[in-house]
Simulated scan of single mutants.
Amino acid sequence: MSSDHDAPHRQQPTLLEAVVGLEAVAAAGDDDRFGPALALVGGLFGSAGPAEAAAAGPRLAALLPGAPPFPRAHLAMVVGACVENGADPVGCAGPVLAGLRGALTGTQRLTRRWAQTGGGPLPDPEGDDPVEAHDRVADPAHLDAWHAHLAVVGWWTLHLWQRAAWAVYAHPPVRREARTSGVTDVLLELFERYDGGRHDFKGLAHLALVLDDEPLLVLDRPTGTGYLLRMDGLGDTFQLHTLLAEVLIGGGHLPGTRPDPEVVALARTSVPDDRRVVATGAFNLVAPDGSWPWNEGTPSDIPVVDGVRTLVLEPPPYERSWSAGRLLQEVPGDLRLERVLPPAEAAQRLARTVPAQPAEPAFR
């Protein structure tokens, strides 16, 4: 008679073996087994090495479009974890960002139908029943059962897609490709339309708009000088303002007070502690048409003139200060001076700009 002690010991599969199993389940279209197979992959991720995680990422990302709607968001989270552990971010980003777009579209459907069916507090994904939400929003005259299901799925899983998208957008090649392809513009528009109240997309929007290896032409009106610089990883205009002062005033090119080294370090790579370190404005940042870009905005707001983003520096109309640091602590930032424009070129470019319009505040 055999006993449990006589049974052969089952060796735990590796992460990649579990991925193969999930791929087989997906190929078979077996939605009932997809969740357990995905749970096995997720459970093995913590013990996997970086090489396994890197290899698993693109393979798991390829399964996202065909995955069942609810497990799909959890699969996206595993893909994001793979990217954070070395998987190719560009190879993983497309399905993740497409999934975020789908979830945002679903939430719009849900909030719209919720308002049409009496309004009131929107469902709580942590405590309410998605079936009840589906029954409320589904109506063939307004939203068929399948799209109602996707609306509920989007509302219940949006936070997972947001985190997975952050993992891929943290990488400059993804930001460049998504911006060039128009994916970022679509997502930004969906962020603007979002009216669910449960999510704040400001950080993700700033991350998506970060400019990498981007030239910046700066013209200083008081001195008539010009500078070509290059931006990397700058997520907000406060950060750019500090680094402009460091490079141009600290570098001896413009008069003024050099920023405190701690303020500069916080704008580049340092992580803030509990103290409030104050940065002080050195310029008025002005667009070539005389409008005032917001310090609270992003360097991507700076207009492109003749193929290069162009900014004019003018004396500050009033004293302004802000908390030093970076909006995106995870992203290191830098600004480098590439060349000083010859006086004739600087004068020619300045002649095509408009002085600041005095009625519009730059700091809001």
Score class of each variant (00 low, 15 high):
V174S: 04
A56H: 11
P317L: 14
P361D: 06
R320Q: 15
R109C: 11
A287Q: 11
L337E: 01
G226R: 05
R268Y: 07
V174E: 02
R33A: 15
V168I: 06
R276T: 00
L75Y: 04
H241L: 01
P342E: 12
R364D: 10
G80Y: 02
A56E: 12
P358C: 06
T242W: 07
G297H: 13
L219P: 08
A138Q: 13
A54Q: 13
L204D: 07
A346T: 02
A115F: 04
A93T: 04
G66H: 10
A93H: 01
D129I: 08
Y194F: 07
P332K: 06
L100H: 03
V271S: 07
E262Q: 09
P222W: 10
A27K: 10
T237L: 14
D30L: 04
L97F: 08
R179D: 15
A56C: 10
Q108P: 06
G154P: 10
H149N: 11
G154W: 12
G196D: 12
L216W: 05
Q162W: 09
G182V: 04
T353W: 06
P255C: 10
L234K: 06
D200G: 07
K202R: 15
R309Q: 14
V312C: 15
W294I: 05
E319I: 12
F363Q: 05
A115D: 15
Y227Q: 01
H149F: 15
L110E: 05
T180Q: 13
